[in-house]
Amino acid sequence: MNVNSNASIIEVQDLTRVFGNFTAVDRISFEVRRGEIFGFLGANGAGKTTAIRMLTGLLIPTSGRAEVAGFDVFTHPESIKKNIGYMSQKFSLFNDLTVFENLRFYGGIYGLSTRDIRHKTDELLERLDLAGVRDRLIRDLPLGWKQKLAFSTAVIHEPAIVFLDEPTGGVDPITRRQFWDLMYETADRGTTVFVTTHYMDEAEYCDRVSIMVDGRIDALGTPAGLRKTYGAKNVDEVFVKLARGGSV
């Protein structure tokens, strides 16, 4: 086994997913270390969401191997689900429930006690500056607030890993900054953050990033390391080089 296995919380080897004759994810291999913010970059349709759905137990892989939080995605997807949080690209909160009712529901589902739920929701709302809208319906809130709340529900049970699928899509720059602050806080408390994005400036905030092109991971490393390897000013340039087919 890998010498780093203690430190790595996600281990993926040759993970593949085929839909008909289309290979959405093509033998990707990587590992994510405990407590880091791992950026999973790629253009639309590169296979990011498919990969994330396999790692969260929503989609059964065609072949390969993957362990998340110590559990195999093929044999123990339900054990994985106890240890992760997931914020999908699709909207995940119930529009016809209030902020508190949503948080209470997800807290309850993850087995938090009634006291913990109350405590956690108060704390989360305080931190998000959203205490004032505790009893408002989700449908009446602006998108940025909803996204922050969706993030909160994904981490209400303090999971080992949280998967965020384009959490900042369609969100204004200020809220985006706040979002990254939230992710840093979450990572500081020991939760590994696995985040997909196609905003390349955000890639610079990650500890390490991988860049996916056409179902394959073409580059993986720290933002500084990638800039150096590809002789680029920033990750954006690295990405454009890769996406245009200029491999190493």
């Binding site: 137990g57 999908s88 995940s92």
Partner: peptide, 14 residues
């Protein structure tokens, strides 16, 4: 349709 089912499927709900 809304997508909330995916959120439920990723929880430990049996």
């Amino acid at each position: 349709e809304i997508g909330t089912i995916e959120q439920l499927n990723v929880t430990p709900i049996t």
